[in-house]
Design a binder for these strands. Structure first.
Lengths: 188, 188
DNA sequence: AAAAAAAGTTGAACTAGTTCAACTCTCCGG
DNA sequence: CCGGAGAGTTGAACTAGTTCAACTTTTTTT
């Protein structure tokens, strides 16, 4: 039973020892090489992942072919396409390893079974989703009221570990600006 | 027991008749006059609301004093500040009636009790939150890859009912542009 | 270690969106 | 029904961010 996963869960719900064990035993350790895809746009998402180490980028190609980064997932983050997982529809997202990484993965069947078997699992993901929702709302507001330079500086100071692992191009795609402009921001 | 609430719940979870009744009986009908606040920035959110009719605007004042609209909630939408409700911390959000409105409201104590008593309530809000999460992710992407004009047109065609109830100033604040620029967009 | 590919830099010209100020229109409160 | 406040419009000057193209640097592949 993995200690990091255990701690992560405990932040959001109170599991008994047996519940924790029952929950964790469905996760299997998988390795991803740098640049390898955990999910590709068009595929159906049949799993959920929890990052033990390494880093992933979650992004999508829009109609115009630009790549938009939704977020980065390093150690202690969860990975999945909620939409595709829920409806078993083709995913709009790509999830790609930015470096060699280790992920604990649970498949969809097991997760659905756990929702049924352990009510506390419903609570766990309810709380996780509500917290994530708040974070997305805040990010949208910040995109409206802060300049690109402010957003860049905030990101670097909030996530120094992630900032050091990603290229400027990926950073720009996360901030919603061109990489040329990011280069000009950094110069000053 | 309100029919609209019942239908809304049934979209996201399967309640038995008794569960539905137990759940719904904690909601009380409240009336809000045009311009009245259901929640003010700085207050603690101790309730959750479900709009029966009318319309609300959920917005926040940023550091620079600009008002940013997160979303509008008309008939069949839920209303609350997840962050403030969860942590009982002062809210960053304002929720104001744009017209005379009716809302079914449940207080925090009852809602927390229902989470304990009826496991299906956990599921309901877990599913609702996950769907909302997907919607916020999509909105952020669209803000990056669409122009203000495109976002305006998409909003009007997706939510014609809401569009007709709000002022251009409120629309601009939702789109993340100035109302002067919205006026220029509409002119063309 | 060489070649190829990708990432980053820089400048010039451009455009989407802002700011400010002046004006008009609408609608609601006394 | 009048007065005032807020909503909407318009123009001119501005700025944040884009686009394109040429170039350098770094990383990856062989």
């Amino acid at each position: 039973m993995n200690e990091l996963l255990k701690q992560n869960i405990s932040k959001n719900a109170t599991f008994s020892e047996t519940e924790l064990e029952e929950f964790c035993k469905h996760f299997k350790l998988k390795y991803f090489k740098k640049k390898e895809y955990l999910l590709k746009q068009g595929d159906v998402c049949r799993f959920e992942g929890f990052v033990l180490n390494g880093c992933f980028r979650i992004f999508t190609f829009d109609q115009k072919g630009n790549d938009n980064t939704l977020y980065f997932a390093a150690e202690d983050w969860w990975l999945m396409d909620n939409d595709s997982f829920m409806h078993q529809s083709p995913s709009h997202l790509n999830i790609q390893a930015l470096e060699d990484s280790e992920v604990l993965m649970i498949n969809r069947t097991d997760k659905l079974m756990l929702y049924e078997k352990l009510p506390v699992v419903e609570k766990l993901f309810r709380v996780m989703s509500q917290k994530a929702l708040v974070a997305w709302q805040r990010r949208l507001i910040r995109n409206h009221c802060e300049t690109a330079k402010e957003r860049y500086q905030n990101f670097v100071s909030t996530y120094p570990d992630i900032s050091s692992k990603i290229t400027d191009k990926q950073m720009a795609s996360y901030l919603g600006i061109t990489h040329e402009f990011l280069s000009k921001i950094k110069k000053r």
